[in-house]
């Protein structure tokens, strides 16, 4: 219940934060919403010597319109994301999924950036970032760089961020006309993490699915795109049967684990069922 002692700094700008992180050395750690880090600290599963609190850095807050994409500040909370008018309009998948994260109190503090940087395989928002082809804007001692979502999630709880880098913002491409989306989350109790989750975005023209993106939560060390489903859906009829046939490939190339909540085998089964449902829902079938 009691974290191991640490020093604490609260920089006011990203640059100050980067210097603070550099000064703290290997055992420095960023805290934003703290909703993943605090339980870890209380259980003494991590022992940073310095916490760099980036939670009050103004330039990391807010959600703005960047033209063909939205710029979501890393410090935007789940609560802000799910209620933001721009997100609801241009990235409804993100708004919907953010609303499924944890519970209202945790959503008031937990941040979009923290969720992505934490790279929990059961996290909902990494999957959405992957499905939407988001781009991460990271800043470190060597300046700013952009990382595509597909390169960002590296392994269990591991992102492509360097230790001294901070995720500053996320560029989320706007979905154009004809797209509709759905996030299907399956958990054992309402406050539990996803056993499996499926993010689906579908572009429909008349009775046909012209393009689809499907990404899976908790089907391996990182979120994965169900590429064979996407391929099978491209050009398919927007019918229950066609969607079910495509969804049957959902477990291809996944590497789910077996744990307390489900075996790998059951996760593979769920991926298929939930993909079918997510795509059908997105396609309005």
């Amino acid at each position: 219940m009691i974290p191991i002692a640490f020093d604490y700094v609260r920089p006011g700008t990203v640059d100050e934060a980067i210097s603070a992180l550099a000064a703290a050395g290997e055992d420095g750690k960023v805290i934003s919403g703290g909703q993943s880090l605090m339980p870890v600290l209380r259980l003494r599963m991590a022992a940073p010597t310095t916490l760099v609190d980036i939670g009050s850095i103004a330039e990391m807050k807010g959600i703005t319109d960047g033209g063909d994409h939205l710029v979501v500040g890393a410090n935007a909370t789940h609560y802000e994301v799910m209620n933001d008018a721009l997100v609801k309009q241009h990235a409804p998948l993100l708004a919907q999924a953010a609303g499924t994260v944890a519970d209202p109190a945790i959503r008031h503090r937990g941040t979009f950036g923290g969720s992505l940087a934490h790279a929990d395989p059961a996290g909902d928002l990494p999957t959405v970032a992957l499905a939407l082809d988001a781009t991460m804007v990271a800043k470190g001692p060597n300046g700013t760089r952009e990382i595509a979502a597909k390169d960002f999630f590296v392994d269990y709880f591991t992102s492509a961020l360097e230790p001294e880098e901070i995720l500053v913002a996320v560029k989320v491409p706007k979905l154009g006309d004809g797209w509709s989306t759905h996030y299907e989350k399956f958990n054992r109790t309402a406050q539990a993490w996803a056993t499996v989750g499926v993010a689906a975005a579908v572009k429909r023209q008349n009775g046909t699915i012209t393009e689809a993106r499907v990404a899976l939560t908790n089907m391996g060390p990182s979120p994965v795109r169900a590429s064979s489903v996407e391929a099978a859906l491209a050009g398919a009829a927007a019918t229950t049967d066609a969607i079910a046939a495509a969804a049957a490939n959902a477990a291809d190339g996944t590497r789910p684990t077996s744990d307390l909540h489900a075996s790998a085998e059951f996760r593979e089964h769920l991926a298929k069922v939930l993909t079918k449902r997510a795509v059908a829902q997105a396609a309005g079938v």
Partner: peptide
């Protein structure tokens, strides 16, 4: 706004 005070420093 509601928060869990065990999860805030």
């Amino acid at each position: 706004k509601s928060v869990k005070s065990c999860s805030v420093l």
